[in-house]
Design a binder for these strands. Structure first.
Lengths: 344, 344
DNA sequence: TGTATACATGTAATCGATTACATTTATCAT
DNA sequence: ATGATAAATGTAATCGATTACATGTATACA
């Protein structure tokens, strides 16, 4: 690639040892005598040697990289997760490839190809909506032990995953609204087949019936986590004859879309309608009004997913008995201004 | 990596040709007879052969990957750019590594290391704030012809770059406010050393003097593109005795931070203060009020940066005479609700 | 027919690091 | 002193694809 080419042989010559010894100094320093080790490292420094990753990868049959599949990079929700991951991968000099599952340009390529082309050793998938076909391919190629799901997961597959306590989040949201006096609580869901949609919807329904709140079918409005779906939900709500007084949204983005459109139609948040989101992305604090929401510890999600994956793809993976039990990360209610006591 | 190991030799045997022929079928199909080519591809399909990238990379001294340096992945501004890039890289099966320059976890690693470790062939840098030290290292290693800047760039370096017409954007913003009757126009800048800060500030100053608008030093408020800096700027503005009637912000995020805090302090946008942003991220349309802003064609920026880089790192790079002239992408004023006619 | 030329394909060296196995040296018990 | 054992290091095969060079074959032209 570059013009320089200090090879391991050059270092060996410089240090007066064999290439094997140099290699060992790098990967198993404890096998060497203090003295030789020193000599090798001195030679490495004086020659400016850097190991050639391609050669190493070829020989060790590893890629030194992992793939992270993100449903939508445009959603700022994901950045902190990626930061958490790079923290865990940090020292292991594993590179992180990021692919957007919604990206038209790359959609021709199957994700299993990254493995088959020996480009990555493992994958963290933030998209629970992988097609059964894709998953089947992972299975067929014996790759399913190199996948970790984070945030989302695949319903009733037993792949390892890290996730927030979604049901608990939904419960906190509904309870908060209940405590503020609200009884007519609507919910804007995520996309229909999504596992998060399901977990949050069930959590909210459970809490709603525990509190014996009235249930109306059209207070469950289908969305898809996007700003635009929040806008559409707002239009539905505006046109209802029996309007809810509060709305729990499956994501902060939905809440923004909702509030924006309510406001454009003269409905004030929180005076006329209270709104609670889910995620607590950075912007939530700076929206008008500041969004009351459920905080996911995105950094922890990323960090844990990364270390879980590293355990899986290590040469001698530790296989704890509960390998398939999802790692669940706590959520937290963040009270701001978008939900207020019911006016009467 | 996986257990399977169909090697090029296996394909060759299956097709009754030599490994060289198989290799040629893949990289220079036109060298082969129709018949042999067919035979090879049939064998490839029947064996399920996939080229081993590590081996190819080792032999060709290429990495088949590029690095994209992003100043802050949490800023949704960058996602569309990445999408644009992956569109350009799409067919060339180049992998894209993304690194966040603000990422603590990776900050120990110098970016030049990615090259020296032969992990990437080129780099697109969205951060003009690379230290002189880093840049020097690229020079020292003869790597400066493998870098393309996008959005930001390094002042007075002659590295190729793709950028928006920032001065024009600033001009459009000021002119729009002027047309609405505003004369007292403030500006919240980006970080002090940033090239965008400079370009936009100068653009706004030029337009302001062209229109013979009053100039007050404390109407130029230092920010850093972040939500938080918008909040701080709002506090300064609120406490001014001679308040501007309109504010042009160096980024949408700043505008959000600003509006959020103005609003929390009882100042209405746009009735009391008009606000114009810069970027047009997706959320701008859904803020309350919807943000009037300068749209950057992020997709085009990404697409062009990627193809520019590909030209640079091709085996026989085309060296157009104007290699160092920045590629400039048009901007556009998007009128929404955050800027309104001056009330009097 | 013979020779020059272009074209298609094969042979084998090569990219640079890792590691199984071999060898040497040091340590220790008998 | 001798052999056994462990520790340190070296030798050389290997990972899998690419490609310079060699070889073989077909075509054209004299």
């Amino acid at each position: 690639m570059a013009q320089k080419s200090v090879r391991i042989r050059d270092v060996a010559k410089e240090a007066g040892v064999s290439t094997a010894t140099v290699s060992r100094a790098l990967s198993n320093p404890e096998l060497l005598t203090e003295a030789t080790r020193e000599a090798v490292f001195t030679a490495i420094r004086s020659t400016g040697y850097r190991v050639n990753k391609a050669a190493r990868n070829l020989r060790t049959r590893q890629a030194g990289a992992v793939l992270v599949l993100v449903p939508n990079l445009g959603n700022p929700f994901f950045s902190q997760i990626l930061a958490g991951m790079s923290e865990s991968f940090g020292d292991s000099d594993t590179s992180v490839l990021i692919a957007d599952t919604k990206d038209q340009a790359t959609s021709g390529k199957l994700f299993v190809d990254y493995f088959l082309d020996s480009q990555v050793d493992g994958m963290i998938c933030l998209d629970g909506g992988l097609s059964g076909h894709e998953l089947q391919q992972f299975n067929d190629n014996g790759l399913s032990d190199r996948i970790v799901f984070a945030c989302e997961w695949v319903h009733d597959s037993c792949l390892p995953s890290v996730r927030s306590d979604n049901a608990r989040g939904a419960q906190l949201a509904v309870q908060h609204l209940f405590d503020l006096g609200h009884r007519k609580i609507a919910h804007i869901t995520g996309p229909q087949e999504n596992v998060l949609t399901h977990a949050r919807r069930e959590g909210m329904l459970a809490e709603r019936s525990r509190l014996e709140l009235p249930i109306k079918d059209d207070w469950i409005i289908r969305g898809d986590f996007s700003l635009e779906s929040g806008r559409q939900a707002a239009e539905k709500i505006i046109s209802m004859e029996d309007r809810p007084t509060a709305v729990f949204c499956a994501s902060d983005q939905v809440a923004f879309g909702l509030m924006s459109t309510l406001s454009a139609n003269g409905l004030r948040v929180p005076e006329d309608i209270s709104v609670v989101g889910f995620d607590d992305i950075e912007l939530s604090e700076y929206y008008v009004p500041a969004l009351t929401t459920i905080r996911q510890d995105r950094h922890a999600l990323g960090r844990k997913a990364a270390s879980l994956l590293m355990e899986c793809i290590e040469p001698e993976p530790v296989v704890p008995t509960d390998r398939f039990a999802p790692v669940v990360v706590d959520v937290e209610l963040v009270v701001r201004q978008s939900a207020a006591p019911l006016a009467n």
